[in-house]
Simulated scan of single mutants.
Amino acid sequence: MTMNLELQGKRVLVTAGTKGVGKAVVGLLHEQGAKVLTTARTQPDDTLADHFVTADLTTVEGCRQVAEAVKARLGGVDIIVHVLGGSTAPGGGFAMLGEEEWLQELNLNLLPAVRLDRALLPGMLDQGAGVIIHITSIQRVLPLPESTTGYAAAKAALSTYSKSLSKEVSPKGIRVLRVAPGWIETEASVALAERLAQQAGTDYEGGKKIIMNSLGGIPIGRPSKPIEVANLILFLCSPRAATITGTEYIIDGGTVPTV
Rank of each mutant, 00 (worst) to 15 (best):
T202H: 03
P223E: 05
A72L: 15
A193L: 01
N107P: 01
Q127Y: 12
G182H: 06
V141I: 15
G206Q: 04
L120N: 08
A67F: 03
Q198R: 12
G76N: 09
A191T: 14
S137P: 07
N213W: 03
L29G: 06
V66P: 01
L103S: 01
A40C: 10
F235M: 08
D117N: 14
L125K: 14
L29M: 15
P145L: 13
I227Q: 12
V26N: 05
V176Q: 01
L106G: 01
M124R: 04
A193M: 07
E101R: 08
S87N: 15
T255C: 14
L165C: 06
L177R: 03
L97M: 12
P239S: 06
S164K: 10
R41I: 00
G20F: 03
L192Q: 14
G201V: 05
V36F: 13
G76H: 08
V53G: 00
N4Q: 08
I233F: 13
A67G: 15
I184E: 01
K19F: 03
G92N: 15
L158E: 00
Q8T: 07
R64T: 06
D126T: 12
A34H: 04
G246Q: 08
S170F: 11
K35I: 03
I233L: 15
G91R: 08
Q127F: 09
L37A: 11
L5R: 03
L196S: 03
C237M: 10
G92Q: 13
G150K: 01
G206H: 03
P44G: 05
L106A: 06
Y161H: 15
V141F: 10
L13V: 13
A156Q: 06
S164Q: 13
S166D: 10
G216N: 11
G91I: 06
G173A: 10
I251S: 09
G20W: 01
I211L: 15
A16K: 00
G33D: 09
G92T: 12
D56L: 00
T38A: 12
V14L: 14
A193K: 04
K35E: 14
D117S: 09
A191Y: 04
A154W: 02
G217W: 01
S170Q: 13
K172A: 14
E99Q: 11
